[in-house]
Design a protein around this nucleic acid. Structure first.
Lengths: 233, 233
DNA sequence: CATTGTTTGTACCGGTTAGTTCATATTAAG
DNA sequence: CTTAATATGAACTAACCGGTACAAACAATG
């Protein structure tokens, strides 16, 4: 049927060397379904049979390509990190003044995490497992390195311009932005159940995002820490 | 019938030397074991047989008192919230100046969350389940209300004294303190695997805690707060 | 053609696990 | 004494679930 021609075209485009068979597409299909299932139900909560049923292929192929459930989970986790960091790479912070660039970075991260719920949930689940699978994937650390380097470069520019406090470290700043943006997604259910859903309405989120930018800017900029001996720059 | 509960409570409180039966102690034992198992392995990851084996009683009694696995999980979750909020109630913020009180609240929360890992993990797991069980326990909201009221009172005092920005809301401030203190525990495995374990060494944690206090204070206090010390640039 | 890798589908296995049943016994309260 | 609640413990089951076996193709390479 027309499926054949479709798969021909797709196969050629996907780097499959003009095959009718398209292993990469099959793997991608499995990974995509597995991500939603793992993100929704956790590692032990997700069911291989459920995943298989929602793919265009069979349970047999899952084991053929990924070995076992843990192997599939690990690939899903790696892919989630890769995807998210790739999306973040499009920021051009060098075109902006340091303060404006930081404002943009914080606002972007907040918004981006908001829209990447399944990624956040994968990280949540991985932390429930004490990062056991992330620890076995050393390449994930490399994937994330650009994130901290981007912060470091921005911070250095701001310090040289005299608008950022010199004692701030890239790691702590990245930690702060991550914590706010992550918590906003990860804990909205418990926090909302206890204190009401107001912060997660459309307007509530817009305001909270703006407040987070404010938190970050006030931490990094402003007068020197008064508990230090000298208050002059 | 109230005689029963009275004498049971008396027996448990008095050490119950003569009492062979002690239902409250049995329940508490089960809950304690269940908390570590659920916190360690998640809801679907925890095993009823494992929990039973680690209690001083039997699997049969778990079902006798808690009905089923979900019922046990729910009681563990409720107890975890109750316990943590009770521990937090000992703060006496009214004795301190607003700025000093806020400093103390932030530092305390950071440290307290650090030392309540199993509570944090229960909240993580509950969020993986979209807060489904918390939503069925309306009393938990009541347990947590004092937390936000304490923040509100402190904030009001600071605003009246002119040292806190008037546009800050209690909810956002509590959200900020929670986010930083929570993320520090919840994500240390993934964050540490990617960016190194430095932030979670003893000295790293002391420094990070101090930075968090700084973040909170800088967010809440006004930009001219340091002017009397000659810090204004 | 021979070889190797890819794909499908079904049926099955063996271990695990939440939850039950039964038989029995002790204690506390009325 | 009677009754109901509180225990104990082992055997059991019914379902579930990760993983495999088997059988049979199809496709690309050399």
């Amino acid at each position: 049927m027309m499926d054949v021609t479709d798969r021909d075209a797709e196969g050629a485009a996907a780097g499959g060397k003009g095959r009718k068979r398209d292993p990469e597409a099959v793997k991608a299909d499995i990974l995509s379904v597995a991500e939603s299932e793992f993100a929704a139900n956790g590692l032990s909560g997700a069911r291989i049979d459920d995943i298989a049923a929602k793919t265009r292929t069979s349970k047999r192929m899952i084991y053929y390509y990924f070995g076992d459930k843990n192997g599939l989970y690990r690939m899903v986790l790696e892919e989630a990190y890769r995807k998210v960091r790739l999306e973040e790479a499009d920021l051009h912070l060098d075109d902006l003044e340091p303060v404006e660039a930081l404002r943009r970075l914080a606002a972007f991260t907040f918004e981006h995490h908001r829209r990447s719920e399944s990624f956040i949930r994968m990280v949540m689940i991985e932390n429930v497992h004490n990062g056991a699978f992330l620890g076995k994937s050393p390449n994930i650390a490399a994937v994330n390195r650009p994130a901290i380097e981007r912060v470091a470069a921005l911070l250095e520019r701001g310090k040289r311009a005299g608008v950022f406090r010199p004692e701030i470290t890239p790691l702590t700043l990245h930690w702060l932005i991550s914590a706010l943006s992550y918590f906003n997604v990860s804990n909205r259910h418990t926090f909302g159940a206890i204190f009401g859903p107001g912060l997660w309405s459309e307007s509530g989120q817009a305001e909270l995002g703006a407040e987070c930018v404010e938190m970050v800017l006030r931490y990094v900029t402003g007068p020197l820490d008064c508990s230090d001996a000298g208050c002059l720059g």
